[in-house]
């Protein structure tokens, strides 16, 4: 019987330091956390690593702690644990909107933030892609979405990133040189193929959220309500004072990176709600750049994410 997965060596370090060292010393090694995306992709021949570095034995990456500097979430925390242990609605809502309950027991925060970009021409079986001469992102020469361009437009579709972005998250990245800390937005390059700014020997180890009392919400548009990647998703955080509400808005599923919008002007007691939220709808549509990476039309994704953002933002001003 032939194997379902191509051959690889499985390594299971139990410290971050050991994982980084293995990654540094091993050719063509790939990190595997919950495996709920990577193993699906490997089954379809989309990745053929020589070695998998399994992160699930690293206890120091599985903790959530809270102190005066805010909330610190290990990259190895699973989505089902995260949903139960976060005070932020947007994060819980985003976590619970990812895959199915069975996946969420294994799927991790780090794996979700580093999720491979998706496209209707990419997330297919080997024979399907081969019959289409593959594509620019993997093994091919042209992009079937934008054939005249030379860049992959596959969409970043992780649900957690926008929720973390509106709450001001920073991430720790471990490498043989030690740990560096960057704003989450800087983890993403914007390119559909080489979508992260991580070097080959780097690991996302922790997510930091500053303390704060912003209210937040996450919503997504998908084909199957029970379980599906976002056609588009939006997270919104709102800070309310007596005179105004300030929003932060971030999108997923619409671009090759999660997009944090420039902060819109605050909604004040002098504003007409209709004018304000219709302008907010337009601003979201302007920031969204959906491509033909899904079978659902880009214009539908753009218009519906604008409308959803406006509705969710208005909802935050009401309660």
């Amino acid at each position: 019987m032939s194997d379902t997965l191509p051959n690889f060596q499985l390594l299971r370090p139990d410290t971050i330091q050991a994982a980084v060292a293995i990654l540094h010393d091993t050719e063509n090694a790939k990190l595997c956390a919950g495996g709920t995306d990577l193993i699906v992709n490997m089954r379809r021949g989309l990745a053929t690593p020589k070695a998998l570095v399994d992160l699930t034995a690293i206890k120091e990456m599985q903790q959530i702690t809270n102190d005066t500097e805010g909330l610190h979430i290990g990259a190895g925390v699973t989505l089902s644990e995260l949903a139960q242990n976060t005070p932020h609605s947007a994060i819980a809502q985003a976590a619970l909107a990812i895959a199915g309950p069975g996946h969420r027991f294994a799927a991790t925060v780090g794996g979700n933030l580093c999720l491979d970009t998706r496209c209707q021409y990419y997330n297919q079986s080997h024979w399907w892609r081969k019959s289409n001469d593959f594509c620019l992102k993997y093994r091919g020469e042209t992009c079937h979405v934008a054939p005249s361009g030379n860049r992959c437009r596959a969409a970043f579709t992780g649900d957690l990133a926008p929720a973390f972005l509106v709450l001001g998250a920073e991430v720790d990245i471990a490498s043989p040189q030690g740990i560096r800390r960057i704003p989450l937005a800087e983890l993403y390059s914007g390119d559909g193929t080489d979508y992260l700014t991580l070097a080959d020997n780097e690991i996302v180890t922790k997510i930091h959220l500053p303390p704060g009392s912003a209210k937040s919400v996450y919503g997504k548009i998908r084909i199957r309500g029970a379980l599906d990647f976002p056609l588009a998703g939006v997270a919104i955080a709102a800070k309310k004072s007596a005179r105004e509400t300030r929003f932060r808005i971030a999108l997923t599923g619409t671009n090759s990176r999660p997009v944090l919008l420039d902060d819109p002007a605050p909604f004040t007691t002098n504003d007409s709600a209709e004018t304000y939220f219709s302008a907010l709808n337009k601003a979201v549509q302007k920031a969204a750049s959906p491509q033909r990476s899904t079978i659902t039309a880009p214009l539908y994704r753009k218009q519906s994410i604008g409308a959803l953002a406006a509705r969710l933002a208005q909802g935050l001003t009401n309660d």
């Binding site: 495996g35 709920t36 309950p101 069975g102 027991f105």
Partner: peptide, 16 residues
């Protein structure tokens, strides 16, 4: 069911 949790076995490595 793996340690009390219902999970898909087709994307779980046996040795884990």
């Amino acid at each position: 069911i793996i340690d009390g949790q219902a999970r898909p076995s087709c994307i779980t490595l046996a040795s884990t």
